[in-house]
């Protein structure tokens, strides 16, 4: 059964030098409250695994401004112009992956698979140095799985066990990240009793969820 903690209690579980998956796409479906609390701490040297880094000083953009990030792994950081400046000055380490390859490597990390071959990115800079293999006459590149110490996510509702449902396009990377971290913390609009959610509608089964953080609708 998942533990229910306040955002302030939950942020104390995180340590410097850890790797953290953060759900969200373009500041939708990201755990805004938890990100803001991390930005208010002295946590540093973080490896952030997230599709994007928000916008300047908003969402993960706050961790960029505070220089709390050692490396970010994701697919599209362009919306954060500050991250771009730091990157071109050599002050921020970014690993850029094709978005589907990024998603699939998280999925692989979460389901006990040791990586996969894909045709995506063959011949481009982002797969430089990767092992290649010819399959049915076409060239593929190997991609390793992605895992993390923590996943910090956002869902619409959780029941007290930790079963999750999402809302519209706020689902994005959250369900796969829930499976790929050693410890999963989920910010939710509300917590309901087990049995309230239809077993058919549950997207993330409660086995993946360690901590639920109620923050209220729209917060």
């Amino acid at each position: 059964m998942a533990k229910i903690l306040s955002p302030e209690e939950a942020v104390k579980l995180i340590s410097s030098d850890s790797s953290i998956m953060i759900g969200g796409f373009g500041n939708i479906g990201n755990p805004k409250k938890m990100i803001d609390l991390i930005a208010d701490t002295e946590l540093k040297n973080l490896t952030i695994i997230a599709n994007d880094l928000g916008t300047p000083n908003v969402g993960l953009g706050r961790l960029v401004r505070n220089r709390q990030i050692k490396q970010a792994i994701g697919s599209y950081f362009t919306y954060n112009t500050e991250a771009a400046e730091l990157y071109f000055e050599g002050k921020l380490n970014l690993k850029m992956m094709p978005q589907g390859t990024f998603a699939e490597s998280i999925r692989a990390g979460g389901c006990g698979i040791g990586g996969f071959y894909t045709r995506v990115g063959v011949g481009s800079d982002v797969t430089e140095g990767a092992e290649t293999k010819e399959i049915n006459g076409r060239k593929y590149v190997f991609v390793e799985p992605l895992k993390a110490d923590f996943a910090i996510l956002r869902a619409r509702k959780a029941d007290r066990l930790g079963n999750l449902v999402y809302e519209r396009t706020a689902r994005n990377f959250n369900p796969i990240m829930a499976t790929a971290a050693k410890f999963t913390i989920v910010e939710v609009d509300e917590i309901v009793e087990p049995g309230t959610l239809s077993p058919e509608e549950i997207v993330t089964p409660f086995i993946y969820v360690d901590v639920i953080v109620p923050v209220g609708r729209g917060e």
């Binding site: 373009g26 939708i28 599709n51 396009t169």
Partner: peptide, 29 residues
């Protein structure tokens, strides 16, 4: 909580459905 990949607000159509990013790119690849 409803945007497209260009971060613009969109709307639903009857029969529309939502899925995670890995599923999304599975249908693309």
């Amino acid at each position: 909580n409803l945007i497209n990949a260009s971060r613009q607000p969109i709307t639903e159509t009857p029969g529309c459905c939502y899925f995670d990013s890995a599923t999304s790119f599975a249908m693309i690849r």
